[in-house]
Design a protein around this nucleic acid. Structure first.
Ligand code: ZN
Length: 286
DNA sequence: CGAGACTCCTGCTGGC
DNA sequence: TGCCAGCAGGAGTCTC
């Protein structure tokens, strides 16, 4: 689900909520999602403070004392929802606007804090995970990742190098290759291509340098717009307070198959690139 | 090495 | 109207 703007939105909200809060207890309901083990999380997290919440690609990294890191990946349908000290509870849970009562059947790991607050890790499809790692473990999780498109590492030279590395790939595959560019997923790859008026299906070697340069500038623009709107809720993505993001109505192509292009009215078409649904305007994008 | 298919899991829905 | 194959924000692994 969440791509860079959604994960960054969650990071900012978690940072505000969890900073310097102390963990009290951890409940793991789905062991396969917790690493190295449910027992290790229970044992090693109790009493630990959250010193910072950072993001790398689509991972959230909670820094703990002693070079320990609690890392989350939400994959397609993961949610992190924080409920401050519960007032009254309903049938043992916390009623959250738009989400119903937590914990629910999709709640697989629960973090309780000394403050009385609770962080619920929900995931409909159970692809997500949480890992407690040391500095080496964090390095293993992040070392292979490419540049952050909203960071200073993202330069035209680096982008052009990343693109030309695989001239026979489609441009969308380059945008979604986390080893080159971190955090761009299916939605914002399509949206960035629309912004640059390039079909996601175009092979890199056929793209003129100037068009590639336009795409280079489109990616951060698209991501920043989504960030300002707190991300795209298609289905399960939620902010830390349970609210949906506001970006969905502003999408130009993703999920708009058959709907008129906002620019030229031509129906948006859908195809497949790298086993992923791919959307573009056949008139505006060449 | 690179490209593409398959896999993990569950719920929703488009199209018949 | 009802049903179900196919599809869904990600990414690791396997084969060719
Ligand atoms: Zn158009």
């Amino acid at each position: 689900m969440p791509e860079l703007p959604e994960v960054e939105t969650i990071r900012r909200e978690l940072q505000r909520r969890l900073l310097v809060q102390t963990l009290r207890a951890v409940e793991v309901r789905v062991p396969k999602m917790a690493h190295p083990s449910a027992a290790a999380l229970r044992r090693e997290l109790a009493g630990k403070k959250i010193l910072a919440v950072k993001r790398r690609a689509k991972m959230l990294v909670c820094e703990l004392p002693g070079q320990r890191y609690l890392v989350f990946h939400l994959k397609m349908t993961g949610q992190l929802v924080f409920v401050p000290r519960s007032g009254r509870t309903v049938s043992g849970g916390h009623p959250i606007p738009n989400l119903g009562v937590l914990p629910n059947i999709f709640t697989h790991v629960i973090f309780r804090f000394r403050s009385g607050g609770t962080l619920y890790f929900n995931d409909q499809r159970k692809f997500g995970w949480v890992k407690l790692v040391d500095a080496d473990g964090l390095h293993e999780l992040t070392a292979h990742l490419g540049m952050e498109p909203l960071s200073g590492a993202y330069t035209w030279e680096a982008f052009a190098r990343a693109a030309h590395r695989y001239p026979n790939r489609t441009i969308k595959q380059v945008l979604m290759d986390a080893e080159r560019i971190a955090g761009v997923g299916n939605i914002y790859a399509d949206e960035s291509c629309f912004c640059a008026r390039l079909r996601p299906t175009r092979r890199v070697r056929t793209i003129r340098e100037n068009d590639l340069r336009i795409l280079y500038r489109c990616i951060p623009r698209v991501l920043q717009l989504a960030l300002r709107h707190k991300g795209t809720t298609r289905d399960t993505y939620r902010r830390v307070n349970g609210q949906s993001g506001y970006m969905a109505p502003f999408l130009n192509v993703y999920g708009r198959k058959g709907k008129p292009c906002r620019r030229c009215k031509t129906p948006i078409v859908k195809t497949v690139v790298g086993q992923r649904g791919t959307h573009y305007c056949p008139c505006c994008q060449k």
